[in-house]
Write a protein that binds this DNA or RNA. Sequence first.
DNA 1: CTTGAAAAATGGCCCGA
DNA 2: TCGGGCCATTTTTCAAG
Lengths: 156, 156
Amino acid sequence: MRRVKLDRIDKQILAELQADGRISNVDLARKVGLSAPPCLRRVRTLEEEGFIRGYHAEVDAERLGYAVSAFAMVGLSSQAESDLKAFEERVRGWPLVRECHMLAGEVDFLLKIVARDFDAYQQFLTGELTTAPNVAHVKTALVLRHSKDEPGVPVI
Amino acid sequence: MRRVKLDRIDKQILAELQADGRISNVDLARKVGLSAPPCLRRVRTLEEEGFIRGYHAEVDAERLGYAVSAFAMVGLSSQAESDLKAFEERVRGWPLVRECHMLAGEVDFLLKIVARDFDAYQQFLTGELTTAPNVAHVKTALVLRHSKDEPGVPVI
DNA sequence: CTTGAAAAATGGCCCGA
DNA sequence: TCGGGCCATTTTTCAAG
């Protein structure tokens, strides 16, 4: 049985954890106006019920030697569900592809790609993506700079 | 003076924190084969030197009532740096735009948009984005499903 | 919500490569 | 000298009242 309604405090908790995923429960409780135990209970419930899917450190890709970011718009020859699934399965095996979104329209998939350098990026494109089965068309665009990069959702 | 080289343990720490941003320092220390104090010292250094930019809870947008995700490809009339900056500044004030990447090529910016429903999405498009100064062309694509959504970088 | 015991975080200090 | 490990104190977590 899963709750459907979140009250104001639940939403505050989610907003705080989205902004700072490593805040201590004591600080979180103070921010939302609770004592620590009920606050922790709420966090656990939000985790169990799937409102919180996980916690991640945001790393600086460039400082870690990943100089190239790019997006690829991929069109497939066949859009049968089994072929879409097959492509998604293949994508899952490509570590350089961090995100894959299936789109409505002429482009079937939008991929976010991260590579150490231009050479690795190009090798992935020519050696993996454009030659994969059922891939009809690939259009790529290098990222020049990240103007905004906020996690999650606007307001909770 | 900032360190440029990360050793094997630093990379392990980053990989673990990227996968689980809320792991306790003791568990992290055990995983990377250190005792807690030096492990925490390394984490603090990685934070201070900017390898770790922050920690975030990954929230489930749909469960939180954000049913619509979309990407918008935006072309500007003027690509003078001051006009690019002006657009980026405007984007910063739009909460529905979670990410904005400046691209090389015919499209100037790729925006990731999250909205509560189709109506809110449409109102943002017609009322804000397409009518913003210097915006020449907007092409949008709704996200049908998220096939892959991994944080950060492939391997560290 | 409060309490209290167990665990974790964190600073000090010494040690070895 | 730069880190790592040990120890002690403070803070946090978390189950029970």
